[in-house]
Design a protein around this nucleic acid. Structure first.
Lengths: 175, 175, 175, 175
DNA sequence: TGATAATCGAGACGGTACGTCACGTCTTTCG
DNA sequence: CGAAAGACGTGACGTACCGTCTCGATTATCA
């Protein structure tokens, strides 16, 4: 009997290899019958969403472990970027198929901690406060994503890519 | 007889409305038989790719008309951002289905003009020259995309969103 | 679940009604999805061939039950003719679309028993033995087919038609 | 410009080679545009029927030339059989696709002359007159067809096959 | 330990979209 | 003016995947 987690991991790997793996192939890759796969995840979309939730959870854990509130804005941004790149690249399929986890969860688990960092920085004057925090979050997200893609395309190290995103945002949106 | 262009436009619109329109529906929406659709575009993917090329061509035209070489870096960035947002939002389907035009074409038609702006700015010292121009292109692209998404989600005006992306990048990556 | 036999029967009936029924219509008539129909019979031709095999099997059964070896040549011929007409008219589609069962099966199941009758008659001197048995089989087949067609066209009774074929052959090819 | 006759001949040949030639292929084989083919023969069926009429006409000519009324029943039957086999084998496609010429024409051109032979024989007492002439015509037709098939399958000469059909019918249905 | 219940795989099924093919209709172009 | 070329709408074909379902077999649980 494969636990749900094991199936998910298998599925994530199978989907990473061939982004359009059929449910049949995913099941086979997980060493599980197709019926079982459907028992756990009623729909292909369900499966992807669940993988997304796993990714979100993992990212949330990393953010928690990053102690964002205890470090400078600059360091916090770098940590966030590193975490996002690491997790994002492991779940490339989600990015490619535009799967988003539950917005509420994403907001609470991922955006909230970063938002807190941003708010603090705005209070301290190190981040411009004439722009909506939500928009700033989006901008930073865009930078991190772009840096991540640039990383895989131009062979940049994770540290450098993360630092690039963080620095650019820091200068670009400073108070 | 429907010209290929007319079919493409119809298809783009149909796909914009319901991102998963079947070839049947697309054909019907174009007032054309399914076979004809397949005669023009051997594959659903083909169709999407061709739409992508149209989008690329349109974007290229806008960039050409923007006279990027005749204006300041700041203004050039703003024009690029506005053009990208306008075109990108019209062809949302491409973004959503992760369709990319031919990389070579994209490079020649879209990246090249922006690259020239960036190069000039680097020579003039207004853009950091310690970072690969390609990476800077990616970063700016990420910012524009993020601003565009923020725009639709938070109801920001196109001017403001474009300006935000341009300004942030300008400050973030200045020389 | 529809057994293959039930589907075949349905299909044979549907095809009998409208000789050019589409696979869609056949499936619908059988109360089965089109995919299922294709799962059983990879091809329209496959379906027809399988129906042919059913017809062959049914004819073989009738021949077996006719105890051809226990009756006079005349009676045997009449029984064969009656059986052939009955079965042939039930599977008119096969005749009309020129579908033949597997030649080996047909030879073994249908021609063989008749051939035995013919051989015996030749030994007994009641059937000319200066002609190839195979050719005689063909001739008799032609007569039966013609009588069957004449029957439906001129409203002759099955008994009379069968007797006509049998008698004509008997006299025509007697030893 | 190809005359209708030339196209027909081409078509008959093309269909003889590959019994399921498409209209496209037939047109190409005739060195004619597909549109022209359709102008002459509104339908594939139309084409086949017209070929059938040609075959009927040819057969009619042969029957006329056979001077059936001037020879003995036996010789007449043999001549009919030879003519039918010759023409039938040249237009095998018609047989295979079950195409029939216009029944009225067939009756007038083909059945009538044979019917006259049969009627005369019945009057003379050499053919049983207790059976409908039409049915006898069918029976003889069946025999000829069967002999023709046996001929191609068992490599019998045309003369022998024709004689076999004629003799069998003669004895089988004599007065 | 042995019966019973839950869970699994295997795989058939209805449905739907895909891409292919031929038919018969038509328009355009050229001689 | 008539023929060649070829696009078009229609509709069947056969394929592939989805999500549903049933069926034994295997396992786990409990008497």
């Amino acid at each position: 009997m494969r636990a749900e987690g094991a199936i998910l991991e298998s599925a994530a790997r199978a989907l990473a290899e061939s982004e359009s793996a059929s449910m049949d192939e995913i099941a086979a890759a997980a060493g599980v019958g197709r019926a079982t796969l459907y028992r756990r995840f009623a729909t292909r979309d369900d499966l992807l969403r669940t993988i997304a939730e796993y990714a979100v959870a993992e990212m949330a854990t990393r953010l928690r472990e990053a102690k964002l509130d205890d470090v400078s804005l600059e360091e916090a941004l770098a940590r966030i970027a590193r975490a996002a790149m690491t997790v994002g690249e492991r779940y490339a399929i989600l990015v490619r198929e535009q799967v988003r986890g539950d917005p509420a969860t994403v907001d609470k688990q991922l955006r909230a901690p970063v938002r807190r960092v941003f708010r603090r920085a705005q209070r301290e004057g190190s981040l411009r406060d004439d722009a909506d925090v939500e928009v700033l979050l989006d901008l930073f997200g865009g930078l991190v994503g772009a840096a991540s893609r640039a990383r895989t395309e131009h062979g940049i190290g994770l540290e450098d890519a993360a630092s690039l995103a963080a620095t650019t945002f820091l200068r670009g949106a400073r108070g």
